[in-house]
């Protein structure tokens, strides 16, 4: 609802915001943040947080471009290695949090630094390579007028939403996030759930990184930084609590769309650079406030994947 409201409001200020082309722009670009935020939502729901998503996006971008080197025949290798790397990163995050009991904030922040360092080390600061023409379709192509990246995002969100709502794992995830001790007593394999959640988070960050790589085609060492906090913002704007166990995937889809919309709106409206940032921040903060007012009982209105 907030998404539509902002769109309408933006349309009143700058009519071009309501054109089909602009809507298409926003949903295409929102897909990158959207997919990364889906992973962040899983990490938040299980009671953790994943600050390594930025590092995963950067590493994915570097790995994918350097392995693909512009050739369609190498797409499978590039995508495969990127996803495997993400599984490895997520497993380590999960094990450090679940077994060594390191606070998720610190564990994943440390991982984020390690990943950026790894990307720097791997490239020597001079990245080479690029996406192939076939791979570029994913981020730049359209199917029946809808951007391919948007379709990937929505499909992923749908599958994840169903999985969290219908599967046993989904119930375990919410139970663990709400109260890990109680979940353990009920027989939930808390550690396995934690590790799986961090793997999912990393995998989705890598998928977002692949979409972004496809959109831009080039390696860039700074590409993932912005996702670290905006992915959390998207989840929280969408109603997921930082305390775990509360929230859902579909809200995050709206949250990512909302944040991208806000950025896009401030770009188009005639605002000075400083004002653009102030407006973006104010819109996001206001949306969370309004959301908490509208939802009766706040945290108790849980379970809405």
């Amino acid at each position: 609802m907030a998404v539509l409201l902002l769109w309408l409001l933006a349309g009143l200020v700058t009519p071009s915001f309501l054109t089909l082309g602009q809507v298409r722009n926003v949903v295409q670009v929102a897909a990158f943040l959207g997919v990364v935020s889906l992973g962040q939502t899983v990490a938040l729901l299980v009671g953790g947080i994943d600050l390594s998503v930025g590092g995963v996006v950067t590493l994915t971008n570097i790995l994918a471009t350097s392995l693909m080197v512009g050739q369609d025949s190498r797409i499978a290798v590039a995508v495969g290695v990127s996803l495997l790397a993400a599984v490895a990163v997520g497993s380590i995050n999960g094990l450090v949090v679940a077994l060594l009991r390191v606070t998720p904030l610190i564990a994943t922040l440390g991982m984020n630094a390690i990943l950026f360092g790894a990307a720097l080390f791997y490239t020597g600061g001079a990245p080479n390579g690029g996406a192939s023409p076939g791979f570029a379709v994913l981020g730049q192509g359209h199917l029946l007028g809808v951007p391919a990246s948007t379709l990937c995002w929505l499909a992923t969100a749908f599958v994840l939403a169903v999985a969290l709502r219908r599967s046993l794992f989904g119930r375990w995830l919410y139970a663990t996030g709400a109260n890990p001790v109680a979940a353990h007593l009920m027989g939930v394999p808390v550690r396995a759930v934690l590790v799986t959640s961090y793997v999912l988070s990393s995998l989705l960050a890598a998928l977002g990184g692949l979409l972004l790589t496809s959109y831009i085609g080039n390696p860039s060492l700074g590409i993932g930084e912005e996702f670290l906090l905006t992915s959390i913002a998207a989840a929280v704007v969408g109603g997921t609590a930082l305390s775990g166990g509360v929230g859902g995937v579909l809200g995050t889809v709206g949250g990512a769309l909302f944040i991208t919309e806000a950025n896009s709106f401030t770009t188009i409206a005639h605002l000075a650079t400083g004002a653009q940032y102030i407006a973006q921040g104010a819109i996001i903060a206001a949306s969370v406030l309004i959301y908490s007012w509208l939802s009766p009982g706040g945290a108790s209105s849980s379970l809405q994947p």
């Binding site: 082309g21 602009q22 670009v29 959109y215 860039s220 896009s264």
Partner: peptide, 19 residues
């Protein structure tokens, strides 16, 4: 501001092209 990054510049420019 596009932060001297291709992805950011492309996203901003796409918005402007429709506006």
């Amino acid at each position: 501001p596009a932060s001297w990054q291709e992805d950011k510049a492309k996203i901003i420019m796409a918005d402007w092209l429709t506006a």
